[in-house]
């Protein structure tokens, strides 16, 4: 296996924010993902790539607590996520964690205005001042390049790219430390994708977010991810620095993946 010595990324005097050890999930006799281990440090972006059915979405669901893994441990900031009470886990997922869905319809409330969508997480953690909530929402819409006069429009009146940016604003408004992204650029045309990636890169750097991003698009990880994990048939076949893996893939599957990208 193309397992690399990870020592060079272990920044001294710094504890990992998120530690995953031997994570395994079976669907009956079928493999979801097997024996996945990694550490994620504050401010680091980890990309997970692989073809459809390689277990990357299963892995993300297990990490975000949407699915319960069969084996392994997930430690966030010294706390065992799997042993946590559901109250605590859900609290975590609306304060320090965020989850950006591939389809913005899954992550937004389509019947609620853009401002309400952004404000929901604030209200969920106890904000009770309308003026403050609205100001924060306006500020965040600006940060994701949505005009302030669209604040009372419903997401159904937004384009796909705007919906995705709104979903990002809604997730980041409470200042999370760890963001899970599932194909955030899926279904968007290339120019919109490029702008979204640019925006995401800026936000990630400015806010010092730790991100775990699942995608099949190598260009996305090239731009965003510090580190890369390649998955095949539920297993991690190679991991390392993004540029290293993409420029000099060791595993046969990684080589196939990299060489499959269309050159324009």
């Amino acid at each position: 296996m193309g397992s690399v010595d990870m020592g060079i990324w272990t920044k001294r005097n710094e504890q990992p924010l998120f530690q995953v050890e031997g994570l395994t999930k079976y669907y009956g006799n079928r493999i979801g993902c097997v024996d996945v281990s990694f550490d994620l440090f504050p401010g680091e972006v980890l990309g997970i790539v692989g073809e459809s059915g390689s277990g990357k979405s299963t892995l993300l669901s297990c990490l975000a607590g949407h699915l319960r893994p069969d084996l392994g441990s997930v430690i966030y900031d010294g706390r065992d996520v799997l042993a946590m009470a559901e109250t605590e886990r859900r609290k975590l997922s609306r304060t320090e964690w965020a989850y950006v869905h591939q389809n913005p319809r899954d992550g937004l409330r389509m019947g609620v205005s853009a401002g309400g969508n952004v404000g929901e997480r604030l209200m969920a953690i106890g904000a009770r001042h309308y003026g403050t909530i609205r100001d924060t929402a306006t500020d965040w819409l600006g940060r994701v390049e949505i005009a302030a006069d669209r604040i009372d429009d419903r997401p159904s009146a937004f384009s796909g790219g705007m919906q995705q940016r709104l979903q990002i604003a809604r997730n980041l408004v409470t200042g999370p430390r760890l963001v899970f992204m599932d194909e955030p650029t899926g279904g968007l045309d290339v120019s919109v994708q490029a702008r979204l990636l640019d925006l995401l890169r800026g936000l990630v750097r400015d806010l010092g977010l730790s991100v775990i991003i699942v995608t099949h698009d190598l260009a996305v990880v090239r731009l965003l991810a510090d580190r890369l994990m390649v998955m095949k048939d539920g297993r991690v076949v190679e991991q390392g620095l993004t540029d290293q893996v993409l420029d000099d893939p060791q595993h046969a599957y990684s080589q196939l993946l990299v060489s499959s990208v269309l050159q324009v």
């Binding site: 409330r109 205005s113 401002g115 309400g116 929901e120 604040i151 009372d152």
Partner: peptide, 10 residues
């Protein structure tokens, strides 16, 4: 409160 927020916004 999102419902009440929507009320005030509208």
């Amino acid at each position: 409160h999102v419902k009440l927020y929507e009320d005030i916004a509208r």
